[in-house]
């Protein structure tokens, strides 16, 4: 009896330790905030990175934690962008309201399509998610009165954030707004991931049959995870629409889904900071390489990706540690 109690206490302590904030996390967010002060000329890039990171975070919840393979996550991103954009063209100027609408719309679509996604295995899921995204793209293309069609949505008028901060040309408001949203959503996702629900998702990913046999409602859990992922992607889409004040069919294009997968793979799947760090690396690499060689930057990105996979992220991570040990070793103990 006391043995079982001790085990339970040990497990609780372990879970508690895992969910505690690591010092490196404080450093990460401090640096994110500091980037606003240090690089005032790159506000727009910072905003772009933040919303890409948020989008990758949402995919991580679906792919990394729940283990649902998807190639159509861009559908929710694009839907969020269009909903926020259309709201802004119809007089709903408040950005937070627009974001809430985008989030709700994406969640609805996510909940509805999760029923399709639950049927079948990985390959089927790839096809279904791809199909949903393609259908949405064509719908947006066919409704030029609502979406502006292939020309993109014109005449967005987004009001100031909280009625205080108007979107400026240098992109300062955009950067602060995107980063703040990212942080707020991150806190929620972090809470979810460390909750019993989050752990049950990991159990399902590892072995759905065994998870079902210990009493986890597999389908319901996956469906909820997919819906939450969709809702967050919708928020990321709304951020894109509001900070650039423009939405085009490109928001729904296949390359959005592919790029975000790439971002997540660069940063690491099934890890809260994977999407964020992947977004930082991917966007900076793209920005720098495209500045140096506008014509051939894709080649270099491809090369880096291949190298990353061949060398392995673990080994890359081990190098600075070994270096640190050598530096530390030289100092008198």
């Amino acid at each position: 009896m006391s043995d079982a109690a001790a085990t339970a206490a040990r497990a609780a302590a372990q879970l508690d330790r895992l969910s505690r904030w690591h010092p490196a996390e404080y450093v990460f967010w401090a640096l994110a905030a500091a980037s606003l002060l240090v690089f005032p000329s790159r506000y727009l890039l910072i905003s772009d990175i933040a919303l890409t990171g948020l989008f990758a975070l949402s995919l991580d919840l679906v792919l990394g934690y729940a283990g649902i393979l998807t190639l159509g996550h861009g559908a929710f991103f694009g839907l969020g962008a269009y909903v926020a954009g259309i709201a802004a063209t119809h007089g709903l100027r408040d950005p937070l309201l627009g974001m809430a609408l985008a989030c709700a719309a994406a969640a609805l679509l996510g909940a509805a399509t999760s029923l399709l996604v639950l049927r079948g295995s990985d390959l089927t899921r790839l096809m279904v998610t791809l199909g949903v995204a393609a259908v949405l793209l064509e719908v947006a293309n066919r409704l030029p009165a609502l979406t502006g069609g292939a020309d993109g949505l014109q005449g967005m008028d987004v009001g100031p954030v909280l009625g205080l901060l108007p979107f400026d040309l240098a992109g300062r408001t955009a950067a602060v707004y995107s980063l703040a949203t990212l942080f707020a959503v991150f806190l929620i996702v972090r809470r979810i991931v460390h909750s019993p629900f989050g752990w049950s998702l990991r159990a399902v990913r590892a072995n759905p049959l065994r998870a079902a046999s210990i009493g986890i409602a597999v389908d319901a859990r996956l469906s909820v995870a997919y819906t939450i992922g969709a809702a967050i992607a919708g928020i990321a889409g709304a951020l894109l629409a509001q900070t650039t004040q423009f939405v085009s069919l490109d928001g729904l294009a296949f390359h959005r889904s592919a790029d975000v997968l790439l971002v997540l793979v660069i940063g690491g799947v099934g890890w809260l900071y994977g999407g964020l760090i992947g977004a930082v690396l991917f966007k900076l690499m793209q920005d720098q390489l495209a500045t140096i060689t506008p014509q051939y930057w894709e080649f270099w990105i491809g090369l880096v990706l291949v190298a990353l996979v061949l060398i392995g992220r673990e080994r890359l991570a081990a190098w600075p540690r070994a270096l640190w040990r050598r530096v530390a070793g030289r100092q008198p103990a």
Binding site: A24, V27, Y273, L281, L284, P320
Partner: peptide
Amino acid sequence: LNRRGLLGLSASAAAFAIG
């Protein structure tokens, strides 16, 4: 987390400095 975080951060700081 620590290792990965540090790696990512140092890389991003370096890239930003070039930027």
